[in-house]
């Protein structure tokens, strides 16, 4: 069951472009980032708050789950909602002082908060086991994964990739989240968020407590961050501080902008395109070392971000009249 294939450090040799194991793990990665960026979409695309600390919520979610399950013997399924609540708690702690700041200060404050979380994870060895990270929190998940696998085998597909159940669950979570967020966005509650994005003062003058709504929006982002953290942890089978670099948040922004702002389905489009292209590059035979290819991938990411912001500030598939970053 324990396949060492990890999405972030793929060290498997791919004989064919059609390798199903490989694309399953790419699919999990794309789904993780779709979940991750759904909350960013609510923040950036619908509330106009620039949360640069999303990876911090992912770290809190993953670590809380792992610590509760592996160190304190809490039931895995119970640890999930508790971890989400802890992530939301952190969202409130970070948001309460910083959400009333100017947008640029808020961006810097959130990235600093996320980095502080990572550094604590790296150094508080008693709690997090430091750079070695935490293992052994996924037994309950593994048995569920096995039953899903058996079920699929019973349906007649015999060589199911071992990560396929996680792939399914990830995308079910992503789709449920996106449908749910899209629906909630169409309610009067969601309308207030959009009003705040457009003009906070106008919303306040009409009797809306803008601060409270921004805090709620951040709490939603914390929730999706934590969920993405669970998927990441189950995928890697361990939780280490190094997975929670600020880079992850920035990739989330690339996903968001590729898919377009102010549309929840955009994060699916963005995530699938980004990861298909980035991972598909592995099949391009380049006379370069591993490190150079890895560097090249991120350089491309940088160019994409620069190009999008220079020429399409609403995102590649965004509607210009609904949400534009440039003004």
């Amino acid at each position: 069951m324990s396949d060492p294939l990890s999405a972030f450090h793929l060290a498997v040799s791919f004989s064919a472009f059609t390798d199903i194991d490989f694309w399953t793990s790419v699919g999990i990665l794309a789904g993780t980032y779709a979940i991750f960026a759904t909350g960013l979409q609510m923040n950036v695309g619908f509330t106009g708050i620039f949360n640069f600390g999303q990876v911090g919520f992912m770290a809190i979610g993953a670590y809380s789950m792992a610590i509760l399950t592996a160190e304190h013997g809490v039931n895995f399924w119970l640890s999930l909602p508790i971890s989400i609540l802890i992530a939301i708690g952190f969202g409130l702690i970070i948001g309460l002082p910083s959400l009333r700041l100017r947008a640029d200060y808020f961006a810097i404050a959130t990235i600093a908060a996320a980095e502080a979380i990572r550094l604590v994870a790296l150094n508080a060895r008693d709690l997090t086991n430091g750079p070695q990270g935490i293992f052994g929190f996924d037994n309950s998940w593994n048995s569920v994964s096995d039953s899903i696998e058996e079920f699929i085998v019973d349906l007649g597909w015999t060589d199911v990739p071992s990560l396929f159940p996680l792939f399914l669950v990830t995308w079910v979570v992503a789709i449920v989240l996106i449908v749910g967020f899209s629906r909630i966005q169409r309610t009067p509650w969601g309308r207030v968020l959009r009003a705040i994005r457009e003009d906070e003062d106008a919303a306040r003058a009409l009797g809306k407590n803008a601060f409270s709504y921004k805090l709620q929006s951040l709490a939603f982002a914390a929730t999706t961050g934590a969920l993405a953290g669970f998927v990441l942890a189950l995928n890697l089978k361990f939780v280490v501080p190094d997975e929670f670099q600020p880079l992850v948040t920035f990739i989330g922004y690339v996903v968001l902008l590729l898919g377009g702002l102010a549309n929840y389905w955009g994060v699916v489009v963005g995530s699938v395109i980004l990861w298909t292209v980035l991972e598909g590059m592995r099949f391009v035979e380049l006379p370069l070392s591993e490190t150079k290819i890895a560097a090249l991938r991120f350089m491309i990411l940088g160019v994409v971000l620069i190009g999008l912001m220079a020429f399409r500030p609403q995102g590649a598939f965004g509607k210009r009249e609904e949400m534009v970053l440039g003004d």
């Binding site: 961006a107 560097a295 350089m299 940088g302 971000l305 440039g326 003004d327």
Partner: peptide, 26 residues
């Protein structure tokens, strides 16, 4: 010259940061 917004520029600097950092790594 195009009157770009502040956050648009912030994201461009992040892209540039990727390009330079990983260019150096390259």
């Amino acid at each position: 010259g195009r009157g770009a917004g502040m956050l648009q520029l912030v994201l461009m600097t992040i892209g540039l940061s990727f390009l330079l950092r990983y260019g150096i790594q390259f």
